Simulated scan of single mutants.
Amino acid sequence: MTERVLALQPLTAEQRAQLEQTGAEIVTAADWENQAPITAIFGWDHEVGPAALMAPNNQVKWIQTVSAGIDYLPLDWIKAHNVQVTNASGVYSPSIAESTIGYLLYFIRGFNEAVKNQAGHFWQQPERNDLGLLASQKVVIYGTGSIGQAIAKLLNGFGNQPYGVNRSGHPVDGFKDTVSLADDHTLLKDADAVINAMPATSATVHYFDDAFFKQLDGLNVFINVGRGKSVDQQALMNALLYQNVLHAALDVFEEEPLDKNSRLWDYPNVLITPHQTGFAKENTKPVLDIFKKNLTSWVADGSLPVNLTDVALGY
C-alpha cells in the first residue's frame, strides 16, 4: 500500500517532488478528505490535524512534527491508538541558544537601561560595578537536552561553565555540574541567572511557582525559552514585584498570544518576545532533512530512525 502523507506544513513544488521520490504520496490540506486513507501527517494544524487523525477512514500511524515540543498534540488519543511521533528536536537549538545569550547580555551588560534612557534622550552611565561579565555569572539551566546543551556550548565560549538540572542528575558535557530536579535547591542560593529549557510534561507544569521563586534572593535574570506552562505567571510577577527576581526575559507564556491586558507588558524589568527564539531561515532545510530520512525509512521498512519520541513522557 502506498503511504499517503498529509502535509500540513507548506511545501514548495520542488520540496514535494523530493519527498515523493521516496515512493510516498503527498496530499495537501485542501484535498485530503476526497482521496484514499491518510497514513501519516507532516506538520500540524489545530483544526485539520485532529480531524484527519481521527477520521474513521484514515489509518494514521505516524506524525512528523516541525517543532521540538509535542505537547500541543492530542497525546492521550495518539498513545491509545499507537501512533508514533517524531519531532524536530535539535533543529531550533542553535537559534534558541543565541537568543538566550542575547537575553543574558541585554541585562548583564546594561542594555536594558540604555534602551530606556535612549527613549528619554537621557545620558546616564551606569556605575562601573553595576555591570558584570558573562564569564563570571553562575548560570543554572533547567533541561540539559538539545536546547540546554546548545546554550551551555555558547556559554562555554564566553568562559562560563553553567550548572544543569535534569530529572536524574546525570552528567552532561558542557556543564560544570548537574543535579536532579529534587536537588535543584542546592544551586539556587547564589545563582545569578536561571534558564528554563525543559520540555512540557506533567512534571514541569508550574514547576516555577511561588515556592520556587521564594527560594531566590535577588536573582539577576530569569529566562524562559522552554514551555510557557512551566512558569506560573502570577508567581513570577510576584517575584519580580518583591525582587526575588530582578529581571526576566520571556519568549513563551501560559496562554499565547499574551493577553493585551496582561500586566507583564508594563513591567520595566521584563523583556517579552513573541515565541520567536526558534526562528531562523536556516531551519527549513534540516526540518525537511529529518522528515525525508524518516519518510524514506518508513516507506522501506516502517522504521523511524530520527527523533522518535516517547509519547508517554511527552518528548
Score class of each variant (00 low, 15 high):
Met198Ala: 12
Asn196Ile: 13
Pro37Ile: 12
Asn238Pro: 00
Lys189His: 10
Val221Ala: 06
Gln35Ile: 12
Tyr72Gly: 08
Gln84Asp: 01
Met54Arg: 15
Phe158Val: 13
Gln15Trp: 06
Trp77Ala: 05
Ile63Gln: 02
Asn238Tyr: 01
Pro171Lys: 14
Val221Glu: 01
Asp71Thr: 06
Thr39Cys: 13
Gly49Glu: 00
Ala88Gly: 08
Ser262Ala: 06
Gly49Cys: 09
Lys79Val: 07
Ser99Thr: 11
Leu134Glu: 02
Asp232Asn: 10
Ser303Ile: 13
Val91Cys: 10
Tyr92Met: 14
Asp71Tyr: 04
Gly278Leu: 02
Thr39Tyr: 09
Tyr103Pro: 00
Leu304Glu: 05
Gly143Asn: 12
Leu6Gly: 07
Asp45Cys: 15
Asn269Lys: 13
Phe253Trp: 07
Leu246Cys: 10
Asn196Asp: 11
Glu113Asp: 13
Ser89Lys: 08
Ala52Ser: 14
Phe158His: 07
His121Asn: 07
Leu187Ala: 05
Val245Gln: 00
Asp130Gln: 15
Asp177Arg: 15
Val252Gln: 00
Gln15Lys: 01
Gly164Val: 13
Tyr103Asp: 01
Ala51Arg: 15
Ala29Gly: 13
Pro74Ser: 11
Val252Glu: 00
Ile195Lys: 04
Ile96Ala: 06
Pro74Ala: 06
Trp123Asp: 09
Leu6Ile: 06
His275Asn: 06
Ser89Asn: 10
Val172Trp: 01
Gly49Gln: 04
Phe279Leu: 13
Trp123Val: 11
Ala200Glu: 00
Glu14Trp: 05
Ile151Gln: 07
Phe253Cys: 04
Asn57Phe: 11
His121Ser: 10
Glu25Gly: 04
Ala152Phe: 04
Asn87Ser: 07
Lys138Asp: 08
Ile41Gln: 09
Gly169Ile: 10
Pro50Ile: 12
Phe158Lys: 08
Gly145Tyr: 05
Leu134Gln: 07
Asp130Ile: 04
Tyr242Gln: 14
Lys138Cys: 08
Ser297Lys: 14
Asn82Asp: 11
Ser95Asp: 09
Ile141Trp: 05
Ser168Gln: 12
Gly278Ile: 02
Asn156Phe: 05
Val231Asn: 07
Phe279Glu: 10
Pro74Gln: 05
Trp77Cys: 07
Asn269Tyr: 02
Leu105Trp: 06
